[in-house]
């Protein structure tokens, strides 16, 4: 029995590359992570020569793992590109947020959050790395990757079970 972690690792890595590379992201869009999660189930069954019915538990497990691996690798790639270019989408979009922010009445909590954003951008511009930005990016990415991974796992399970049923007939 091959490890249950290998195919989600491979598919999660591929999904992270596809979601980070701008040209490729346009084509797959929101289907990349669900497809990767479904494909990880398919690869696992192929690797084990197994045609048994996949349970919801397995579908969710593979989806979850693909989502987590995808988020981890996306964060790693983001750190790499930010380190190389000393900028990223967050830094580029900050002036827009600042313009909006200046039109508001001052509020202590919002001021503190915005100050944190500015510090993150400053660290990225000077050092090419910000720990708080890394945590921020991982948190945002992991929520979405896990949700879409779980959906992909369930869809992959449904497709594979149907395919196995049709091939048994």
């Amino acid at each position: 029995m091959k490890s249950k972690y290998i195919s989600p690792l491979v598919c999660g890595f591929t999904a992270s590359v596809l979601t980070i590379v701008p040209g490729l992201k346009e084509i797959g869009c929101c289907l990349i992570i669900p497809f990767a999660a479904g494909f990880s189930l398919f690869l696992f069954q192929k690797a084990n020569n197994n045609n048994e019915k996949i349970s919801v538990k397995d579908g969710l497990f593979f989806g979850l793992m693909t989502g987590i691996f995808s988020a981890v690798f996306s964060t790693a790639l983001e750190i790499l590109f930010t380190g190389i270019f000393h900028t990223n989408e967050f830094v580029k979009s900050l002036p827009q947020v600042e313009a909006m922010f200046k039109s508001f009445a001052p509020q202590i909590l919002l001021d503190q959050v915005f100050q944190m954003y500015k510090n993150m951008a400053k660290e990225i511009r000077t050092n090419g790395f910000s720990l708080i930005y890394t945590i921020y990016f991982f948190a945002a990415t992991s929520i979405t990757s896990v949700i879409f991974g779980l959906i992909g796992g369930l869809l992959g399970m449904a497709f594979i079970n149907r395919r196995n049923l049709n091939s048994d007939k």
Binding site: T19, F90, S93, V97, F104, Q107, A140, T141, T144
Partner: peptide, 22 residues
């Protein structure tokens, strides 16, 4: 809502994981 603008970059980042947002 003023406070939304401050969380918008985070929410935007969440959705950008699964969409090119052109």
């Amino acid at each position: 809502i003023n406070s939304y603008e401050i969380v918008k970059p985070f929410i935007n980042q969440m959705y950008s994981t699964v969409c090119h947002q052109q």
